[in-house]
């Protein structure tokens, strides 16, 4: 335990936290499934360059002709695209873009949402009113249309996706954190901290913040999923970054190049399944941890 938290009942020791996490995974099969999916994706992303059998951008040749629309085979597990690129290799490289977009956007959402939720819950008064008002306005902006218009008016790419996710999805996190902070604020240890002369900032960031971090992480795991879905939709509508290899770009490529009419399931089914698995992982983790964080709902 760091010295500056001594005497504060709100900060658990690292050991106790690890034990709680261990207990949680043992009792929640859903959460284990979700965490395993994440682990697998992270591993694939780290070793993408070794795992991918081909260069994902290389046009493969079959003799003199481009090896286009190949079906599934031992050489190409998921066949090839209309421009002779290996689908499996693209799928493997896609994990990197998915993780980058997902983690960056989720971190941004959680940081903004937690900070604003904490401020509005703990300070109350005008800060609370301003932040609630901001959240109401943000909730009035349609997500996908906003992203499309922004991408069209600036320049398409993952930057716009991450910005939109961060700018429009924080109210959900903020609302939950605010509610939690409202109840934490009345606890005796906060009063004790106040009496011993802790500054407001210190109480908020050293005493209250660690208490709401698990909840914030929970919303983060769901936000990863929304970010990946947002990226996929933007790419599909033609506002992605055409130079990166992402699952969304793969789906757009397949849709635009007759994969559907040719029945090339090997091409368009895997990227969508990969997106689904990754988003589902976030849902499963958050669902499992709901019981941990909201014991009142334990029955459900």
């Amino acid at each position: 335990m760091p010295r500056w938290t001594r005497g504060c009942p709100s900060v658990r020791s690292v050991n106790a936290m690890m034990q709680a996490i261990g207990r949680f995974f043992r009792s929640e099969p859903f959460a284990i499934a979700g965490a395993s999916i994440y682990a697998a994706i992270v591993l694939v992303a780290v070793f993408a360059d070794r795992l991918a059998p081909y260069d994902p951008k290389a046009m493969l040749k079959n003799g003199n002709r481009v090896a286009r629309y190949l079906p599934m085979s031992p050489e190409h597990w998921f066949g090839t695209t209309s421009s002779g690129r290996d689908v499996l290799s693209q799928l493997i490289w896609g994990t990197r873009s998915a993780l980058t977009v997902g983690l960056t956007a989720a971190l941004a959402v959680v940081a903004i949402g937690t900070l604003l939720g904490l401020l509005s819950g703990y300070l109350g008064g005008w800060a609370d009113r301003v932040i609630t008002w901001l959240a109401d306005i943000v909730l009035g902006l349609p997500f996908l249309p906003f992203m499309l218009v922004l991408a069209a008016l600036t320049h398409p790419g993952t930057g716009v996706v991450i910005f939109t996710v961060a700018a429009l999805l924080w109210p959900n996190t903020a609302r939950v954190i605010r509610a939690q902070v409202l109840s934490l604020r009345e606890r005796a240890w906060v009063e004790a901290a106040r009496v011993t002369g802790c500054s407001t900032a210190r109480i908020m960031f050293v005493h209250v913040l660690p208490q709401v971090l698990p909840l914030a992480a929970l919303y983060g795991s769901v936000a990863i999923g929304w970010a990946i879905l947002a990226e996929a939709s933007a790419s599909f509508l033609g506002f992605g970054d055409p130079d990166t290899i992402s699952w969304g770009v793969m789906l757009q490529d397949a849709y635009a190049n007759q994969a559907l009419s040719r029945g090339a399931w090997n091409w368009f089914a895997p990227p969508g399944a990969a997106i689904m698995a990754m988003v589902l992982a976030g849902f499963l983790i958050s669902r499992g941890s709901e019981k941990l964080l909201f014991p009142k709902l334990a029955g459900s």
């Binding site: 999923g225 996929a232 939709s233 969508g272 997106i275 689904m276 589902l280």
Partner: peptide
């Protein structure tokens, strides 16, 4: 429950592509 979660996790347009390929094109 996992199936209900899975349908929410799948990209909408991909569900549409699967249905299009299976029920319209093929």
């Amino acid at each position: 429950i996992p199936s209900a979660l899975a349908t929410r996790a799948a990209p909408e347009f991909w569900l549409g592509m699967l249905l299009l390929a299976g029920l319209a094109f093929q």
